[in-house]
């Protein structure tokens, strides 16, 4: 009973914050203020979990539970994502049929840049995720795009994340009303309830991080993309950010969107921006 009621109080205050974040009028102005949102978002998690080191939030469920963290640290000695990392490195150094490589499509040859994705492309007027940029690179060089959910795409992003490990997330919002709109749209998507079970992303990852949903420990929303892509035993393999978002949608009986739909791009933009300053930790491994 005690556990139950303190839990209730906990989720109530979380809900209040979530509510304050969703309705900007409550916060003060009608103006979109991503910097203030990020600060409030981070403070909420820092206060809710005072014993978790700030840079640890990027380790998903492992940041919430000492026992699991120990198991995971043992696993890290033989990381289950190693095959993907090797494959990604190999793919990165193998030229396309036209002789060019992935390195030609990215700043700094694609090395150590994960923390800058997704970015807002002022020419296109939209958010560009790393996965999208990789497929665009392939298509620009006459190659067929890869599936967004696993295999090659996970290998490529695993390698790019690995070369960026420890770098603080560094997402910019350019002075362009469309960029602010994308951020707002992502935020709205994150806090909107949907599907037959009536969950928002925030229901699970803001209101209930650290709680068990059946046997799984819910990851906190702060830094939730820093570890992507991830290996999951349940998947017997790697999954990209796209795969995780689609899985969270369908597990809650909501209809998943198309990979790289505007809402997914925007929610990635929102979640990455509010994680600014927290280190890239991908690729990750999960139970």
């Amino acid at each position: 009973m005690k556990a139950g009621s303190s839990l209730l109080l906990g989720s109530l205050s979380a809900a209040l914050v979530a509510f304050a974040l969703t309705s900007p009028r409550v916060v003060a102005a009608d103006k979109v203020d991503p910097a203030a949102d990020a600060k409030a978002f981070q403070n909420f998690f820092f206060q809710k979990f005072p014993n978790v080191k700030h840079e640890d939030f990027v380790n998903g469920p492992y940041s919430m539970n000492e026992d699991m963290k120990r198991q995971w640290q043992e696993k890290e000695e033989f990381p289950p994502y190693e095959f993907a990392l090797d494959a990604g490195k190999e793919m990165f150094s193998t030229p396309f049929k036209n002789g060019k490589t992935y390195a030609d499509c990215f700043p700094n040859g694609g090395i150590g840049i994960r923390q800058n994705y997704p970015y807002f492309d002022t020419k296109e007027g939209k958010v560009v995720t790393l996965e999208l940029a990789l497929n665009r690179c392939r298509e620009a060089n006459g190659e067929a795009p890869y599936s967004y959910v696993k295999d090659e795409m996970a290998s490529l992003t695993a390698y790019m994340a690995f070369t960026s490990r420890g770098k603080p997330m560094d997402i910019k919002i350019p002075d362009d009303p469309r960029a602010f709109e994308a951020f707002e749209n992502g935020k709205r998507y994150f806090y909107t309830r949907r599907g037959q079970l009536n969950f928002s992303c925030a229901s699970c990852h803001v209101q209930s991080p650290g709680q068990r949903i059946r046997a799984e420990i819910l990851a906190p929303a702060l830094g939730i993309l820093n570890a992507m892509p991830i290996y999951r035993s349940e998947w017997s393999g790697m999954g990209t950010t796209t795969r995780r978002l689609m899985t969270c949608n369908s597990q809650t009986r909501a209809v998943p969107l198309e990979p790289q739909a505007d809402e997914y791009r925007d929610v990635e933009y929102f979640l990455s921006y509010v994680a600014n300053g927290l280190p890239i930790s991908g690729p990750g491994a999960r139970p």
Partner: peptide
């Protein structure tokens, strides 16, 4: 219901709701 509640007789309960 076991996703969120401990219930006598059920396996692998979650912790989101009260017992």
């Amino acid at each position: 219901c076991l996703t969120c509640h401990v219930i006598k007789g059920g396996d692998l309960p979650g912790t989101i709701g009260p017992e």
